[in-house]
Amino acid sequence: MEVRTIKVFTTVDNINLHTQVVDMSMTYGQQFGPTYLDGADVTKIKPHNSHEGKTFYVLPNDDTLRVEAFEYYHTTDPSFLGRYMSALNHTKKWKYPQVNGLTSIKWADNNCYLATALLTLQQIELKFNPPALQDAYYRARAGEAANFCALILAYCNKTVGELGDVRETMSYLFQHANLDSCKRVLNVVCKTCGQQQTTLKGVEAVMYMGTLSYEQFKKGVQIPCTCGKQATKYLVQQESPFVMMSAPPAQYELKHGTFTCASEYTGNYQCGHYKHITSKETLYCIDGALLTKSSEYKGPITDVFYKENSYTTTIK
């Protein structure tokens, strides 16, 4: 009895394709271990004539594949690729409408935090270190965002349907971005203890939790000093293409032309909904596939993004 075979390709990165001759009487799992086709788990399936010449994702289970996976995804987590594939199996079914010149995501599976993050990423200057993220990001900007969303979920250790947080998501993504040249110098002034300067680099240099107003941050924000008295913390120097200011959701007025974009969060910790506000020729609110415009805006804002380049204080 002759062994019926077909020729397929296996890959971990969709760049390096490895030619395989597979036995049609055995499952993919018996031949390769966990195997995925377009995100779908085909591990328990036997090869079919229609699979001839198709590319299958496999887990990096030998040295060659491990090197290829690390170079593309910059992670050695053995569960990463499987999590990416199972997320992709959902995100490829989502709709990605162009809204006001940006790629958004039609609401499904509690994905409003991903839509808000995706919209924000198209408006701030950011370059990702893992080629996987950078490639998928370019495709997302062009309207094909399924891979990018699935990668975000995998890097953030999230599953489809789980509630997510924009600030946490951005923080994970910033860790995989090139923020080497970003720098922030802060000064804390206390009447009792004097003053202390701190220099922050990388992710810490672009994120701040405690106030939404970048102007206020430049002037000074009140913080408790270690001595128990009130101290003032203010920005001395900022070198970065953008800054992200966050605070627990509270009524906040966004003035046209003073910011790049913002995240609105309605609801409580267990259950809520994100919308995205962007400042173009007027203010726009993007909620999944829905767009509304207004000249002014007041609502429960939790993150505001500002364009920056270089700032030095005039406070002496």
Rank of each mutant, 00 (worst) to 15 (best):
Y155K: 03
G53T: 09
T292P: 00
I277W: 09
K233D: 00
L151H: 03
Q20E: 13
Q195G: 10
K46S: 14
Y269F: 14
N61Y: 10
P47K: 05
Q238K: 01
T312Q: 15
T314L: 13
P78E: 15
S50G: 13
Y306G: 00
M245Y: 03
C149F: 02
T76L: 13
M26A: 15
D287K: 00
G143K: 04
K7E: 08
N178E: 08
C156Y: 04
Q175K: 14
M170F: 09
R167A: 06
G194S: 05
N61D: 08
H48G: 12
A150D: 02
H276K: 00
M209V: 13
G194C: 03
T292I: 08
E125D: 14
I286Q: 00
H18V: 10
Y172W: 13
S294Q: 14
V221Q: 07
D135L: 12
I315N: 15
M170Y: 03
T64I: 09
E162R: 03
R184N: 00
A150H: 00
F70V: 10
E264H: 04
Y137T: 04
Q31T: 14
Q98H: 08
T159E: 13
T313A: 10
I223C: 13
K127D: 14
R66G: 09
S294A: 13
S295H: 15
F128A: 02
G164A: 04
S171H: 09
P248M: 09
S294G: 08
N111A: 03
C156P: 02
K183I: 14
Q216S: 09
I286K: 00
Y234K: 10
A87S: 08
M26N: 07
K255W: 06
P60A: 11
R184V: 01
H74Y: 06
T313H: 15
L283W: 01
T232I: 12
Q216H: 10
K307V: 07
D287Q: 00
Y311G: 08
Q216N: 09
K218R: 07
E2K: 15
I315W: 06
S181N: 09
F217S: 04
V304A: 00
K191L: 09
Y284M: 10
V3S: 12
K92C: 08
M245L: 08
Q251Y: 11
A262K: 00
H273P: 01
A40R: 10
C271H: 12
S263D: 06
A117S: 10
T35K: 04
E296H: 14
E71I: 07
N309M: 13
S263V: 07
N187K: 09
A108M: 08
V188F: 08
L114C: 03
L65D: 08
S310N: 07
Y113N: 02
E52T: 14
Y155G: 00
M244Q: 01
E253P: 06
D109H: 07
E204M: 12
L254G: 00
L235I: 09
L65Y: 13
P131L: 05
Q270P: 02
V203W: 15
V3L: 14
C285I: 11
P249W: 01
F9R: 15
F174M: 07
A262I: 00
G161W: 02
Q222W: 08
E162F: 04
A115T: 12
T313L: 11
T10F: 08
P224Q: 10
V99K: 06
G101S: 07
R139D: 12
F9H: 11
Q238H: 02
D287T: 00
H256G: 08
A136Q: 13
E68A: 08
K106T: 14
Y265M: 00
L283H: 01
I15R: 12
H256C: 13
Q237T: 14
D62I: 13
R139V: 08
F128L: 05
Y274K: 00
K106Y: 10
I315S: 14
Y28R: 04
V22P: 10
D109Q: 09
G257V: 02
K219P: 02
A140I: 14
H90F: 10
C261Q: 00
F56A: 07
Y96E: 04
A140W: 04
A117M: 08
P248G: 05
S295D: 10
D180I: 07
L114F: 05
V99D: 04
C112V: 03
K219H: 10
K293Q: 06
H176R: 12
D13P: 05
L254E: 02
Y36A: 05
T120N: 14
Y214M: 08
T19A: 15
T19C: 11
P300A: 10
G33T: 05
V22K: 07
F128Q: 02
V166D: 02
G29V: 06
F56N: 04
Q237E: 15
T159L: 14
A250S: 08
M209L: 09
A142W: 09
H176E: 06
E168Q: 09
S263R: 00
C285E: 08
V67I: 15
C261F: 01
E239L: 11
E253V: 14
K316D: 10
V42P: 04
S294I: 15
T313P: 07
T312K: 14
L121W: 04
F148M: 10
V22T: 11
L81H: 12
Y297D: 00
K219R: 13
K201I: 13
L291W: 13
Q98V: 11
V236I: 08
F305H: 00
N157E: 13
